[in-house]
Design a protein around this nucleic acid. Structure first.
Length: 395
DNA sequence: AAGTGGCACAACCGCATCTAT
DNA sequence: CATAGATGCGGTTGTGCCACT
């Protein structure tokens, strides 16, 4: 049951690794690399299965492991990433250099869940517990989003929840723009709002300044969303939006349509990118190819951008498949120059460490390499074309 | 001193996905 | 295309340590 076929062939050791075994494995991999894991134990002279060797290497022997206690910044990052990614430990670990998925999973189960509960936050939904309790009391709804939100505390969502099911956020009062909008287009009042389903928490956490200009978002009741371009055209110099960026912005099936060029093609995207770098009113539209409410975030594993070559023609699947990890690893970092410095807000998790800055906090040096996912938001400070996003029903 | 519970950490198990044939 | 083996991932369990009674 579950044991590798090789484990049946001979009596293999289980349980804790001895220092001698560690030494053998480390020595072998250092000299030869792991190659095929199933052959490693034999070649290294170990009475273990390949699977066990792999795990031991990844979780313990790898030289790039950080070890030691998690810093407060790391904990906060895990919490934030969990809100986005759910129990995708390997993807969370990918954002924390030197940390393993197992380590993060253990930390979450033993420590972070408890901390969130102490702060009256449901660790599964990242909503206030009172709200979760209220949802539980509600009669079953036909709305799938509500069903997901009312998961029991022991049920771990396999996929990240739509951001609208998470938590209210505090936003900075320094902006004059109304930036954080839920999918019904409600604007933020009293400095509190819900993140947008459409844009996800990365947007929700941030509004951004570009030079002297604040860039905003707007939304309408049809769940379309627009970037508000900056007022100064000089800000648009060197601004481009690439299809990769779009993938990152909209981790769901979207079709891409240029308002300027309805017959936009994959090539046209490139043309658009190059031709519109100085146009303030360049407009592109994205439309969900699946039911937005059902698939927001949930389809991220196989997210594709479908380039609509012709508005009358069914979608063509774009060749570029991006996984979440790829979104998060996309090197969009533009540096923390004053021009693109982001004003950040504090989430409710700031209770954990209120002084912890988000993304651009210079004190968070441990995030700088490789860059944290949150800096994806930098994209928007550099890509100032006006475009709108429309999420429709299944096409 | 012995028993117990909580905790952190390590490792295993079962399943899904990928890849080679 | 089907299949088997390899790999990766997430859930769960086992183990040792420590504090407390």
């Amino acid at each position: 049951m579950g044991r590798h076929s090789c484990c049946y062939k001979q009596k293999l050791r289980k349980g804790l690794w001895s220092p001698e075994e560690d030494e053998k494995l480390l020595d072998y991999i250092t000299k030869h690399g792991h190659g095929c894991w199933s052959s490693v134990p034999k070649l290294a002279g170990l009475q273990r299965c390949g699977k066990s060797c792999r795990l031991r290497w990844i979780n313990y022997l790898r030289p790039d492991l950080k070890r030691g206690a998690f810093s407060q910044e790391e904990e906060n990052m895990i919490i934030e990433l969990h809100a986005v990614l759910g129990n995708r430990w390997s993807q969370i670990a990918a954002q924390l250099p030197g940390r393993t998925d197992n380590e993060i999973k253990n930390l979450w189960n033993s420590c972070l869940k408890k901390k969130l509960r102490q702060r009256s936050i449901d660790p599964n939904t990242h909503k206030p517990l009172s709200e979760v309790e209220k949802d539980k009391d509600m009669p079953p709804s036909t709305d799938k989003t509500n069903q997901k939100a009312s998961l029991g505390s022991n049920e771990v969502p396999a996929k990240p929840l739509p951001s609208s099911e998470r938590y209210p956020l505090e936003v900075s009062t320094s902006s004059t723009q109304e930036l954080f909008l839920d999918r019904f287009g409600a604007t933020c009042h009293d400095n509190t709002c819900r993140p947008s389903d459409v844009v996800g928490p990365y947007f929700s956490f941030n509004h951004f300044n570009y030079g002297t200009t604040t860039i905003g978002l707007s939304a309408n009741p049809n769940a379309s969303l627009s970037f508000i371009p900056p007022s100064t055209s000089s800000d648009l110099n060197n601004s481009t939006i690439t299809s990769s960026m779009l993938h990152s912005i909209f981790p769901t099936h979207v079709k891409l349509q240029s308002n300027d060029n309805p017959s936009i093609s994959s090539d046209a995207v490139q043309n658009w990118e190059s031709n519109n770098t100085n146009k303030t009113n360049a407009s592109m539209q994205f439309q969900s190819s699946t039911n937005f409410l059902e698939n927001t975030w949930g389809v991220a594993d196989s997210a594709k951008v479908n380039i609509n070559k012709d508005s009358q023609v069914p979608l063509q699947t774009e060749q570029e498949d991006l996984k979440w990890s790829e979104y998060l690893n996309t090197p969009f970092i533009l540096g923390n120059t004053p021009e693109n410095q982001i004003q950040t807000s504090q989430s409710i998790y700031s209770e954990v460490k209120p002084e912890t800055g988000f993304i651009t906090d210079e004190s968070c040096t441990s995030w700088h390499h490789p860059p944290p996912a949150f800096q994806l938001s930098d994209i928007y400070s550099k890509n100032l074309q006006r475009f709108s996003v429309t999420f429709g029903q299944t096409l």
